[in-house]
Design a protein around this nucleic acid. Structure first.
Lengths: 255, 255
DNA sequence: CAGTGGTCTAGACCACCAA
DNA sequence: TGGTGGTCTAGACCACTGC
């Protein structure tokens, strides 16, 4: 029976050479991912039980389990013993602000106060376009805001979002919303940020930035450039943050 | 049966109530961890096969497998199909410099040139002692060095190590050694760094720092304070780094 | 070829949760 | 009480490595 068992290589000529062997559970994972992408199950909802999925895909429960294990490890779903497996969300996750790694040097953090300085539709310059996989001149939403913790303006952020997916985003919406901005993106625009990459630098505050953050011009600030992705590694947000680090620090775990 | 159920209470009277249920594979993981700590298998060596371990602990291969899965996820051990499972090491790991997240803005990185400025035995001040779980005044080794990439001095680091474990560390040793410093720690002192926490800030270069890094006084630098741990969350190194970020950045992945 | 880790299955039982 | 995820087992077979 020659090959088979690889599930790939549709009509490879004679020597498949590398049959691109893909384990069954990886294929199952891919199928579940598809359903997540297409929105068959919405954020916060339960996905079918392991038994149901096993029946649907005609594999054993163990195979489904391993697929879900990986999805859980990537924070795409959350398992809850006795209840089920749920589509991950930024809304009321055990850890709100999953992507914000700035923590106070000591003590607990009160809620942030948000001030929206700007929210408008603009044309992407070359940099922004490249990051978001758009073309220069395409429409993007641009947001500027300041986050204040306990009366100290601490974060100045510029955010760029693809104009197509975020049509209709307004400053009022951003100001009115409680909780993580990514929760708003899920609820209002159906966009789920799943992963992000950050590039961090130390920079000197420019005049305008210094004013907004109430520091001296030239004061050292942490520059955090974040590119966030939805499913399938599609970039959906570029964010340039300037963090004051006189009473906060960026916390990272290495292993 | 009253209360308990908290998993603590070492010698609770009559009713164990909640025996602090721990899955078998977690116990196995603990046993394997012990062997790693005591050095039964050295860094780079293979640990016994899954079958052997299953026989030794009188459990099924699957249970050992799940224990090893977790150890591999924590980077304590590396699996190699067809060959075996090996104790992780900083020496020739696929990714050298596991803990260094500073990358060039573009292009590949050449090897770093190290300049050891200082290496001596001192008494720990309160800060250092607290971080390393020592007492103020205990002996610590203190190292200062500059790392240069392509003629640009980029990293200035101060390192503190418990005097006991690192007795006899010399500047010559540090200068002569090739590859990650953590590899030297493994080979010469039997200390394996397994995990680390970093606190990152933006700071202004002080006079001496500016001189060593060839930047202007007051220039913004990335301050990276790293506390590294061996097995069992025992702190074994405190490191304060100052990074130039004019042509490098600190790269981080969020998920 | 034998030995290792990797995949897949089928079934039993346990811990947790809600009704 | 029934359903969910979590653990554990035993056995078969596959893919990779080295002799």
């Amino acid at each position: 029976m020659a090959s088979s068992h690889t599930a790939d290589s549709p009509a490879a000529a004679d020597p498949p050479a590398t049959p691109a062997f893909s384990p069954l559970y990886q294929q199952i994972k891919g199928l579940i991912l598809q359903s997540l992408e297409t929105g068959e199950w919405k954020p916060g909802e339960a996905i079918p039980s392991e038994m149901e999925l096993a029946a649907r895909f005609r594999v054993s429960q163990g195979t489904v389990r391993k697929a879900i294990d990986e999805l859980a490890a990537e924070n795409l779903v959350v398992r809850r013993q006795g209840k089920g497996t749920f589509v991950a969300t930024h809304t009321e996750q055990q850890v709100r602000y999953r992507f914000l790694k700035l923590v106070p040097d000591s003590g607990e953090e009160g809620p942030a106060q948000r001030r929206i300085l700007d929210c408008r539709r603009v044309r992407a310059n070359a940099d922004i376009a490249r990051a978001l996989a758009l073309r220069t001149g395409d429409a993007v939403m641009q947001v500027r805001r300041v986050l204040t913790f306990g009366a100290v303006p601490t974060i100045l952020e510029d955010i760029w979002l693809p104009g197509n997916a975020f049509k209709g985003l307004t400053a009022e919406q951003l100001a009115a919303h409680q909780g993580p901005t990514y929760a708003l993106f899920e609820l209002e625009f159906g966009v789920r940020m799943v992963r992000a990459e950050e590039k961090i630098r130390a920079v000197a505050a420019e005049t305008q930035q210094a004013g907004l953050l109430a520091v001296a011009e030239g004061a050292p600030l942490l520059s955090v450039e974040r590119l966030s992705f939805t499913y399938n590694d599609v970039p959906m947000e570029l964010r340039r943050g300037l963090y004051r680090t006189d009473s906060h620090h960026y916390r990272n775990e290495l292993s």
